[in-house]
Design a protein around this nucleic acid. Structure first.
Lengths: 138, 138
DNA sequence: GTGCCACCTCAAGTCCACTTGAGGTCAAGA
DNA sequence: TCTTGACCTCAAGTGGACTTGAGGTGGCAC
């Protein structure tokens, strides 16, 4: 278990130190302790950070990501929730596929109005199954 | 071409009127004109709105979405950009798949630490190909 | 013709995810 | 011992995406 300091973690993860402190404060990552006043991290926090980045890039809030990732040593709590999240992501993937196809279509098709095009309309239908992202936390 | 007012558009799209005004100001949607002081929209703006919602739920900024969707009557400008966006989305989809699988795995696997698990580690590797989302606009 | 109300504008406020800045501390080197 | 520099804390600032609020307006019902 390699111990690294915040600068090393920042370097290896690409996440600024300020953000790492912020994430720690929010409980998204943990430092193992301090060496003097300096935080020490387990080197594998980088993996957790890429998961966080992934979640962010998928449009999840930090709170939602915290839910998904748990406390790190997560026991068997919330398996159902994990599965629910997985399904939610699955739906996003589907709709994202429609967006991508729509974009490709838009690049290829030279019809003046995509609204007229049946392909595009089909895509729209899929896209329209929207997930109203609840504001309140579960 | 059905003409509707902002309240109807809000109702049929689920997007609050304040947001519709905001989107119009940002150039994401267009109103056809005014009836008195009231905006008139083409009913098919709802489709554009679902595309916007989709993009948002996928983590895109309004500016990026504006790029993708174009001016509505988008001519053949930026086909390459559209394709680039499509590929970007494709990568997101891949990584999202990894997240979903990771979540499912986490729900199923009762190993105390996922870091030890080979399946999970493979997933991590995929997840780690992160897209540093450029801050500046291209 | 006068009220009403849904819509309007524009400025300010809110929430989230960070970043920046001021001022402080410890470990190491000159 | 003193300085340096990377790290620290805590408060305030920033940018994006909206929302809210105050005050105004125009078409329709009466």
């Amino acid at each position: 278990m390699a111990l690294i300091d915040i600068a090393q973690l920042a370097r290896s993860s690409g996440v600024p130190a300020s953000t790492l402190r912020f994430y720690e404060e929010k409980g998204l990552i943990e430092s193992l302790g301090r060496r003097g006043l300096r935080r020490t991290f387990d080197a594998d926090v980088v993996e957790r950070l890429s998961l966080i980045a992934l979640g962010r890039s998928a449009g999840y809030s930090l709170d939602e990501i915290a839910d998904m990732l748990g406390d790190g040593g997560a026991p068997d709590i919330d398996r159902a929730m994990l599965l629910t999240k997985a399904e939610e992501i699955d739906r996003t993937i589907h709709r994202l596929g429609a967006l991508r196809d729509g974009l490709r279509h838009a690049a290829a098709c030279r019809a003046p109005s995509h609204a007229q095009c049946p392909t595009f309309r089909r895509l729209m239908t899929i896209a329209a199954e929207r997930t109203r992202k609840a504001k309140g936390k579960g």
